[in-house]
Structure formats: C-alpha cells, structure tokens
Design a binder for these strands. Structure first.
Lengths: 249, 249
DNA sequence: GATGCTTAATAACGTAAGTTAGTATACCTT
DNA sequence: AAGGTATACTAACTTACGTTATTAAGCATC
C-alpha cells in the first residue's frame, strides 16, 4: 500500500473537480490517500456478494460491472463502470455489499481504506460533497436504466445504453471520434438490458440495418447520433457531465 | 417554517438511530431543524422533474412514489416511499432532480432546507453517516428492484414487491398482523413492476389462487409468507432492517 | 338511491421477446 | 497452421405479456 501514485491522483482529481475545481489542500489530501493498486484479469471477480472489504475502490483502467445472482444462473447486471468511476462508495456506510463486481476487461483498481476516506471527508467537506455527488450520479444512471427496463423495448434500451456509454467515455476522452471500445459481449449486454443474447443479437442487427451503429470486433461506431438519440429517447441531463463536448456536440 | 415538531423529530430520530443510537446532542440537533410541513392530496405532485426546491423532505405520513415520464404516457415508477423515508437526500448534491414525485395517498411531508441539513451534517459526522446510510439503503432497494425488472417474471416481481413493502412497513409498526395497507392501484403496480394493468390483474389472481395473498379494498393480507418468499426468491438482507421482527419472524 | 366516474375483472387476440438448435466466425493456444 | 473454445449469427417455434374491448364492481356526489 503506497500513497496514491501520480496517475491515480490525477484521475481522482479530474473526477472530483466540479464546477469550482479543488483547492491545493484538497488536491494534496487526495494525493496523500493510501491506495492498494490491484490488477485483475477479464471475467475475474473483484467483489463477491456479501464480502466486506473495508475499502472503497476507484476504477483506474478497464471496465467492470456490478451484478446480482439469482437462481438458475440469472445474473442481472446493475451497473457498468468505466475508468474514473467510484463503484462502491456505498460500502462506506453499508459494509456488506448486496452485489458482486466483475471485470469486463483486464482492469486495474485502486483500493482506499474506509478509514482514510472518512478522515479525508471530515477534513474537507468539499471533497465529501464531491464524493457523494459521484455516488449520486451513479444512482441517477441506475434510475435511468431502471426506467428503461420498465418501459422501453429492446431497441430503445440498447440505443439508450449506447448513447450513455458513449458520453460517459467521451467525458474522459476515451472515445475515438464517433467510435468507442465496446468490450461487452452480447451475453453481457443481455444481462444488462434484461434480454436474452439471441434477442440482443436481433436488436443489434436492427440498429445496424437502420444505419444507427456499427459494431465489429469490440468496437462500436455511432453512425447516426441523432437517430440513435431519437430511438433511445435519450436526454443526457441525468449524467451531470461537466462538458457536453463530444464528437456530435 | 417552525422548528421540527415533536412527532417529526420522533420519526427522524427513530429512522436515524442505528445500532448505536444517537447522542443527546445529536437528537437536539435534529429537533432544532427548521421544517416546513406540507400536506398534499392523493395524486398530487410533490416534485416535478427538473424543479430545484432547495430542501430535502421526509415523508411523515402516507405513501409517495418517484417516477420518470417517457413519451406516450409511459411512467415508470422508480421508488415507493413509506412514512419515515427520506426520498430526496440526493438533492443535497444534485439540485435538479431527474424524477418527479407524487403522493399515492394523502400525505404529509416535512421540508428541511439544504443549508440546515448541511450544517447539521458538518456538526455531527454521525448524523451525516446516518443520513447517507438511509440514502444508500434506498439505493439498495432500487438495485433489488432493478434486478427484478431485468430477470424476474411478473409473478416473481409482484411477490417480491409484496414481501419488501410488508417488511418496510413492519419495521415502523405499520402492519396489522399479516395484513397491511396497499394503496397502490393496479395501474400504479403496473408502472412499478414494468407490466400492464391487465397483466397485473392476472398476476394478482395467480398469487391469490395460489393461496399466497389476498387483496381487497386497499388491504393486502399475506396468507403464506414462506410461499410468497419462495415465489419472490426474497432475501431481506438488502433492506438493512434493524429488527427483523414481524408477524412471520 | 340514481348518476356518473374510477377501478377491477375477464376474454379474445396479437406480438415482442424467449427457447432451442444449429452453423459460422472469431479468437486463443500450442 | 491446426485445433479447440468462445462468441456471433440465423432460423423455427413457443410463450409470457401486451392490446383492445366489454362488463362488473366500488365509491363518490348530489
């Protein structure tokens, strides 16, 4: 366990800088956090349902997701996380997680002990607010997702997910023009969208045939942003992005 | 706007007392909160999507729900709240809500200005933690709900909701033996479960015919708790209830 | 105790998505 | 490059749930 490495601190500082930015003291506080960096292989469990770890993590590289296991192998995916996300701040006050977490790609995470986070949050109310803001944005993302599961058809759900992931990646410069990495297999998409893999396949074909996206070899390209937004009824407000700058702005 | 009335303080104190209870100073802090009590009629909007109110609310009596509006009158319900719940703590850090809130029954709510809540949370870290714990429990409830929308059939979803609401009501003594109030109309249940009212009706009949519940005149009775739990694959851990005491313990 | 209005119950029919099964393609490993 | 495994694609068939429509039952208001 070493003090937060430069790159980790940079990611945290970028993530937590809201409209007002962070003071030097706050930035130093973040840089002083003790962190254990861990690398995991794709498909490897990061957190098992019920494990209490005593630390929070920040996703530094790669993608992860949270899921719940139900009987019969059903595995609803509850959230997808991309670099910069803080997936389990909730563990600060609910030590026993009600979900598991796996890596969707090879991933590296930083684990920071709860005690250190708590100390930092008490010393810097602004940082506490910034941490909570992040947690609350993830909760807002969950709400939007939930609304889709409840009341959108397969096409709308898939389109919505594409829009959302594109913007979330774009906000930290991880898109490549209109294209982005798409590490989720159709099986994962199915678990995220509440569909079967077969129907995900059909629906992808549908969006492809409609000229909205193309998806080959783990790379998703958005061919018609407006059309996709429309199919998704997508409104980016819930993401609370600082800059709405992306290839289609 | 007056200082929290006795009953309001009692509800807050009960809600926020975790395993350790609250100190006298903390309880006094809660009693000193300025609160505006408002009564709303059933079906009346409490919060419109996008409104910034500048305060948080606590539900003192009655039921409310949060929803999002989609095109074509689709109205997914994202959360159901019962007395004691703090439905919009998130507004502390995300002032523009991404959802609306309506009363499901005549309801009375207490509104506390953000500034006052923030002051209290800075003065009493324990209270801050307790508030966040409540918000995180509601988020956990959302996750469980989401998993259902994604991977449970109509029967499982409805059974799960019955189990959950029963325990949540039971934890503040609002059940009556194996029975509880059930103010949601079938139309509301449909929006909460991602189904159509017709199918909710069919599914209710299904659970009734299976001898698991009975539902007449806004009153839900659980006839076979074990059977219902089984149909729901219900595990109450995610509710983080202090006491698992209820009629079926 | 009529009148209307909202909610619940059923039935008949339609369809989006699930299931099963098979083939093709990509991707690893040696 | 050959073989094996995981993933993607497609088709044929089934089903849970949606849709539309009608009737019945509550539950207000005058």
């Amino acid at each position: 366990m070493v003090a937060v490495a430069n790159s980790t601190a940079a990611i945290l500082i970028q993530k937590l800088s809201g409209a007002g930015g962070l003071s030097d003291a706050e930035q130093d506080g973040l840089r002083g956090l003790p962190v254990a960096v861990r690398t995991v292989a794709a498909r490897q469990d990061i957190l098992r349902d019920g494990d209490a770890t005593g630390s929070c993590c920040i996703l530094l590289d790669g993608w992860t997701c949270c899921y719940q296991m139900l009987n019969g192998g059903r595995r609803p995916i509850l959230a997808i996380h991309v670099p910069g996300d803080l997936p389990d701040l909730q563990s600060l006050h609910l030590p026993e997680p009600d979900f598991g977490m796996v890596a969707l790609t090879p991933a590296t995470l930083g684990f920071v002990p709860h005690a250190a986070v708590r100390r930092l949050m008490e010393a810097f109310p602004n940082l506490a607010a910034a941490f909570w803001r992040e947690a609350l944005i993830l909760a807002a993302i969950q709400r939007a997702w939930m609304a889709g599961l409840s009341r959108r058809d397969a096409r709308g759900r898939l389109a919505h997910l594409c829009c959302e992931l594109y913007l979330r990646l774009s906000s930290t410069g991880r898109t490549d023009g209109p294209a982005m990495p798409m590490p989720l297999r159709q099986h994962d998409l199915a678990d995220a969208l509440g569909l079967t893999p077969v129907h995900v396949n059909r629906t992808l074909k549908d969006l492809r045939d409609a000229g909205l996206i193309s998806l080959h070899g783990r790379r998703l390209e958005i061919l018609d942003w407006l059309g996709l937004r429309l199919a998704a009824e997508f409104d980016d407000q819930y993401l609370h992005l600082n800059s709405a700058e992306h290839a289609f702005a």
